[in-house]
Write a protein that binds this DNA or RNA. Structure first.
Length: 718
DNA sequence: GAAGAGAGCGCC
DNA sequence: AAAGGGCGCTCTCTTC
């Protein structure tokens, strides 16, 4: 083995020989960075190549001793091919993967005051790819062969492509950025991924619940809670999921643990065309080495945690699918966005004038509203659960009390729509599309979250600003009533399964619930006809149903429906009689969850308690709900993974994952094929697990020129 | 002036 | 006694 000094000299020699190329790097990149793959590389790849080295006449097996635990820099076609040959010769178990990158343009300002910034992922500039090939030894240990590939050298791409196609798990910590680097280079993501960050997130799902700490309503163990709240913060959660913290948990060394941030930053500000320091290169190698070392003990931890199957089947493939949503982004029509803003700005202005005439100068201020209604002697009408509330429900209940209530309500709604980050003219990246950050398992139920902007929370009125590229159409696929249907299968309620299979759960249940009030004619209507004939009865059932799954109280449902509590209680009791097993099974599941300390979804995914001590009522509510919401999220991802892989055949791309529906952008030519494929896959993904369930997929083929909610074009309709 | 809590909007 | 699951974002108001 070389000493550290000798190794550094060796590295320095290599670095200095491959970096006199400033012109190549700086000029071509700036011009072309909006392309999928950098064309200068493409041209070079397509042009007849003059090998940098003499063609090798004999391909002798590589000596593993030469590559073991020693950093090899790949900066030539010969070196890259040798790496590929070596990887194919050795009996490997997995590959550590890491990419170093920077961004070629300015970031995108986000937040209402544009005081925050996010990078434009389409301007990512891959610098180095680090690969650590792991080979098990007979004694159970693992030997690692680290390589660092210089991505400025176009000749290495074909061999790198070959490496990425190896049928091995590629292990990295937060692989999304690494996948972006590969896609930017025109390379595919590896087929099998293992994201060590995601694994840690899943193994701790439900712990670190910062939302609970902010408003500790349960004061069972207030002292403990407050201590935890002081001690832990969101930054701490972020740290717990970091590579260094993960290394520490598994006893894996990381040579740059003390200087990690410094090196990360060094790549982000790395000058165009400047050579890398030897430290930078060995730092790049270290991250892939650490990921490779974490893999085996982490897989064991996942197996012991009962989530290995879930991770391998669902979450790890979704790492690529999730990256695709962010990489693809959505196209926002600037003209539509400004028309929408202007439309609501005008309405807001006229409402403000009306309110000012009534004496309300600042309609957003809570104190001003309190004072206004107090003067009128109407304040008590806005009391909800003890305190004064001017939220949507409270305002709706008081529409008839005073015209100001209606105006304030409307103003709040339209101001919220106008503030949506999607309408910001500067929200798009260099490709003209908006790329929100999509977080896998961002929610403790394993649901997705999105931010900057939150494309999952865009108001129905604003959705039509999302349009397809010319020649494309937007298709939307919705798993109809997935949660009540899954509740039927999970909690063993045959009536619910039958209702699902008949087409519309809420209509089917409404027909039974209101049997006394309905005519014989009503009772023989099919679900769709019933829905059209008795929309209010169906709507009431929907409220009951979802409220039961969320664990609402009689008082809550009474407040929601505007009826006395006693009446709410009676309605809930008769509703429970319709589905006799449901509430019992939900209580049972919460009981087992309480004993274990976690709730569990159909594939074994767990959500842990975020606190100790007696199980609170709020915890019991999410415990029952998690089995349904978590399982729905799992099937949704299973479907998305298959759709994503098949989209490539049609030049289609997934662009929004909306909890139970996908928005897909498809070339017009292939819309029928993709519609058939996506609908079938979503239906089958549930059936693979619950064969008795026939969940419909709602898809409206007539609305293809923009994104809508239920086909509603809002202000853009004719 | 910055930071945080609370409230309130949107989504499923 | 209180009792609606899961999120992101922006604004107001209070506090330090």
């Amino acid at each position: 083995m070389w000493t550290r000094t000798l190794l550094n000299n060796y590295l320095e020699g290599l670095v200095s020989t491959f970096w006199p190329r400033e012109g190549f790097a700086s000029t071509t990149l700036q011009r072309r960075n909006h392309m999928e793959a950098m064309p200068c590389w493409k041209e070079r790849l397509e042009a007849p190549r003059e090998p940098k080295e003499e063609p090798r006449t004999a391909r002798l097996p590589k000596d593993p001793m030469f590559f073991a635990e020693r950093l090899t820099i790949v900066d030539s076609v010969g070196g890259a091919e040798a790496m590929l040959d070596f990887a194919r010769e050795r009996p490997l178990s997995h590959v550590g993967l890491d990419a170093e990158f920077r961004f070629s343009g300015a970031g995108i300002a986000v937040g209402s005051r544009h005081d925050k910034s996010k990078p434009d992922i389409r301007q990512i500039v891959p610098l180095l790819v680090s690969l650590s090939f792991a080979e098990p030894r007979p004694d159970g240990s693992v030997v690692l062969y680290p390589f660092v590939v210089d991505l400025w050298v176009p000749e290495v791409m074909e061999a790198l492509r070959g490496v990425l196609r190896l049928p091995l798990p590629f292990v990295g910590h937060y692989l999304k950025n690494d996948i972006f680097c590969l896609w930017k280079l025109g390379l595919p993501a590896p087929r099998t991924l293992w994201d060590s960050c995601l694994c840690e997130r899943v193994l701790t799902l439900g712990r670190n619940r910062w939302r609970d700490r902010v408003n500790h309503t349960d004061d069972d163990s207030a002292e403990i809670e407050e201590a935890i709240a002081r001690e832990e913060s969101e930054e701490e959660r972020a740290y717990n999921l970091s590579l260094l913290a993960t290394c520490r948990r598994y006893g894996v060394p990381h040579a740059y643990s003390a200087r990690k941030e410094e090196f990360q930053r060094s790549f982000l500000v790395h000058p165009e065309g400047a050579p890398f320091s030897t430290d930078q290169i060995s730092y790049a190698a270290e991250d892939a080495l650490a990921a490779a070392r974490i893999y085996i003990p982490q897989v064991q931890a996942a197996a012991l945690g009962g989530v290995l199957r879930h991770l391998v089947e669902i979450e790890m493939p979704w790492v690529e699918t999730n990256a695709a949503f962010e990489w693809n982004g959505v196209r926002v029509d600037p003209d539509r966005a400004s028309r929408l803003s202007a439309h609501f700005r005008a309405e807001a202005e006229s409402i403000r004038v009306e309110l000012a005439a009534m004496g309300i100068r600042n309609p957003n201020g809570r104190n001003e509203k309190i004072e206004f209604f107090r003067r009128l002697g109407l304040l008590e009408r806005f009391r909800r659960r003890g305190s004064i509330s001017f939220d949507k429900d409270s305002m709706e209940a008081n529409w008839y009390i005073h015209p100001a209530a209606r105006l304030l309500h409307r103003l709040g709604k339209i101001e919220s729509i106008m503030r949506d980050g999607l309408l910001d003219p500067g929200a798009g990246g260099i490709d003209g599309r908006v790329h929100p950050e999509h977080r896998q398992c961002g929610a403790d139920t394993s649901r997705q979250t999105a931010k900057w902007p939150n494309v999952l929370g865009v108001s129905g009125d604003a959705r039509p600003v999302v349009v397809p590229e010319p020649g494309n159409v937007l298709l939307d696929f919705d798993l109809r009533q997935i949660e009540p249907s899954l509740a039927g299968a999970i909690f063993g309620v045959p009536e619910l399964v039958a209702a699902t299979n008949s087409g519309d759960v809420y209509s089917a249940v409404a027909r039974k619930f209101y049997i006394e009030e309905l005519s014989d004619e009503d009772l023989v209507l099919d679900d769709d006809a019933f829905k059209a004939r008795h929309p209010e009865k169906r709507a009431a059932m929907k409220i009951f149903f979802l409220a039961s799954l969320y664990g609402i109280s009689a008082a809550g449902i009474a407040a929601n429906l505007g009826i006395p509590e006693s009446e709410g209680r009676a309605l809930m009791e008769s509703f429970a009689l319709l589905l006799p097993n449901l509430s019992e099974a939900m209580k049972e599941s919460a009981r087992f969850s309480s004993l274990r300390g976690y709730a569990v979804a159909a594939t074994g995914l767990r959500r842990y308690r975020g606190r100790t001590g007696p199980v609170t009522a709020a915890e019991k509510r999410w415990m029952s709900n998690f089995e349904v919401q978590g399982t729905a999220s799992v099937f949704f991802k299973a479907a998305g993974n298959r759709i994503h892989r098949l989209c490539g055949r049609f030049g289609a791309r997934l662009i929004v994952p909306l909890h139970d529906s996908f928005l897909i952008e498809v070339p017009e030519l292939h819309k029928e094929e993709v519609a058939e494929m996506a609908s079938r896959i979503m239906r089958e993904s549930v059936q693979e697990f619950f064969p008795e369930l026939d969940i419909r997929v709602d898809h409206d083929p007539s609305r293809v020129d923009c994104w809508t909610k239920g086909g509603n074009l809002g202000i853009f309709g004719e």
